[in-house]
Amino acid sequence: MHIVVCIKQVPDSAQIRVHPVTNTIMRQGVPTIINPYDLFSLEEALRLRDRFGGEVTVVTMGPPMADASLRKCLTYGADRAVLLTDRFFAGSDTLATSYALSYLIKKVAQEWGEPDIIFCGKQTIDGDTAQVGPGIAKRLNLLQLTYVAKIDEFDLAAREIVIHRRAEGGIQILKTKLPCLVTMLEGTNDMRRGSIEDALRGARSEIVTWNAAEAGIPDLALCGLKGSPTIVKKVFAPSPRAEKAFQIEVQGKTPAEISDAVIGEINQRQPGLEQDIQKMAAGF
């Protein structure tokens, strides 16, 4: 079995600080990580491989330094990592990204066999669009299963997969055919530690690195800024609210007295709310 996992290297949002005065993101020195949502997909891929045999190929499109994240995936146990990097890809929106990635996956399929299943993360923590997975699926004409909470059945011989998909108001249980593209929901598994052997292999292994030509991307006009229908016209700060909060007097007051003042203020500003809460509690 061949599994392809798409990952993206992103800035570590937990380490991002917003400048208190200018309100801009302080990017300097912010370390990069594997997009956290991608790890749930990678772990699921590794589990399938461990159960059914085969190989996991991890791919990314990004700057040369994205090889650090790919290497990390090898230490978790991925079998192979491929980096697609070229200046032509700079400024790609999701349509241009899925275009490049779909050809990258085609090339990977030529080299190491057609994938039976492709994984993407649910979304990234930087662009946060959740559009690239469906984009790749459409371009490769694959069935797509998003927001997967659980892979219930996986039958390689019958080429069938049954999954639990998070929908509005419940869980959809869907059955479809391989090959397909899956995005895993967060919290569905815990990323393994990775063995010592994998750690050593990850450190030593070569990351396969291709440029646009080597990956066989047919039309560079569909890549990067040029191939992106969306255009960022302006970037600006949100406007501040005119007045500050009305402060409840707290000096020398007990919590009970403060509470009464707060409730008075709530009732004055939201008349009827307390009555509605009352009605709800009574079951109307």
Binding site: D93, T94, L95, S98, G127, D128, T129, A130, Q131, V132, G133, P134, G135, A137, K138, R139, Q144, T146, Y147, R166, A167, E168, S228, P229, T230, I231
Partner: peptide
């Protein structure tokens, strides 16, 4: 931008080859 809308919008935009702004 629900699970349904996000699942569908990406497929539709890619089929139509047009731009899609999220959230």
């Amino acid at each position: 931008a629900t699970n349904l809308g996000r699942d569908l919008a990406g497929s539709v935009a890619t089929t139509l080859l047009t731009g899609l702004t999220a959230d």
